[in-house]
Design a protein around this nucleic acid. Sequence first.
DNA 1: AATTAAATTTAGACAAATCTAAAAATAGAT
DNA 2: ATCTATTTTTAGATTTGTCTAAATTTAATT
Lengths: 231, 231
Amino acid sequence: MSNKNVFLKKYFLMTRSEENYLKTIFHLGGGDSKSITTNAIAEQMETKPSSVTDMAKKLSEKGLVDYVRYQGVSLTAVGVKTALSIIRKHRLWEVFLVKKLDFTWDEVHEVAEQLEHIKSEKLVDKIDELLDFPKYDPHGDPIPTKDGKFQERDEKLLSEMPINSQGVCVGVKDSSVPFLKFLDKNRIALGNTIKVLDKEDFDNSLRIQMDGKEMRISHQIAANLYVKKND
Amino acid sequence: MSNKNVFLKKYFLMTRSEENYLKTIFHLGGGDSKSITTNAIAEQMETKPSSVTDMAKKLSEKGLVDYVRYQGVSLTAVGVKTALSIIRKHRLWEVFLVKKLDFTWDEVHEVAEQLEHIKSEKLVDKIDELLDFPKYDPHGDPIPTKDGKFQERDEKLLSEMPINSQGVCVGVKDSSVPFLKFLDKNRIALGNTIKVLDKEDFDNSLRIQMDGKEMRISHQIAANLYVKKND
DNA sequence: AATTAAATTTAGACAAATCTAAAAATAGAT
DNA sequence: ATCTATTTTTAGATTTGTCTAAATTTAATT
């Protein structure tokens, strides 16, 4: 292997495992120069803290994270950029699966976890174009742009909306399969307009109007649905 | 890990490396119970014969190949089925890249090498459906069906066609990037009708008619183009 | 400030996939 | 039938990513 390739390998080629660590650290908030503990990362990734320590050293060597022994890790600028590019791929693939291949929103995550590691810049850009440059994935999470910008959402949890206000359902906080299946079964989908009719003091459940018909939902549901206020 | 998962791991979950070996053995003819030498496999995969020996033992343990020391390997029925499912995925993804994302036929192979390892039966079937169940990939190679059937092509090399016969260009024998780029540059594409006007005894070059206009091509080109005889 | 509990790291081991160098088996030529 | 030359395998080492168990550091409590 030539010197040049050694350079490339060390600084540009990411293994699947390294990519997964970066993604997890980002999701735990390590992009805001906040230190994330090895324990937190281990728990999230269902691995052991000692394995995380090993990887922390490796990513630190590569300049992707700042790592201080016993203090945890945070992403460097390059680390953030790399994490965002993986998240971008993940979310674009999710949109593709739902929009082009009729996957339901609880089926997409597992497959996208694999597809996000495919290495081809042209492929991602073309998928983006095919989907007409979507801004949000099927769970309502924003898709980072090619240059790593994140468009923030001006949204609220349904549980925080005042009585008589209304908005469009734009995302979920909990994207676990059981929750998504529950939403499907109750015909709650992204894009639906929801109006808060009443709140029950006793259990914080809500009476809402959606697509003309009234229904009652628990606080637990309302606290996991993001709504974009109409006005 | 439960007993059941151990079973699943040993007998169903294939690593990327295992899949690549099976695919290579199939392409070298190991599907016809012909023994393929470790040297041939090593050369094709750009690895060392000793590595192939290790993998041969492992695949043999799993019942995917028959391996006799010093004699080489051939695929078992299960091995053939597995190889075909990988080849099916590879070729479907190639069609997808060309038809839906405007990749050129010399760009698709490298990306398809990655995509072929994505594990989701639903994904493959849906891609197949989206493409309207194509029978051939962009290089003219047949796509195995879901149940592992291979439709054979009734085709000839252009170099073997008699004078004054004509046919439709359906595939390439050599699918290297330089050859594919050459074809692109000379406007030779799958689907074109080609008529053999004359053969030159001296160098075996051909005078052909394609899309109304005449041209001369070398024997080397003609010996790498598959044509389906019209009548 | 000392002690204890919790978190984190180190040291050493393991499995997968590869390699090199040496040993063994096969095939071809005389 | 024997002797080479080639092919193939073995044995042992390496890298990556993981683990367990022990040691170390930090944080919390009194």
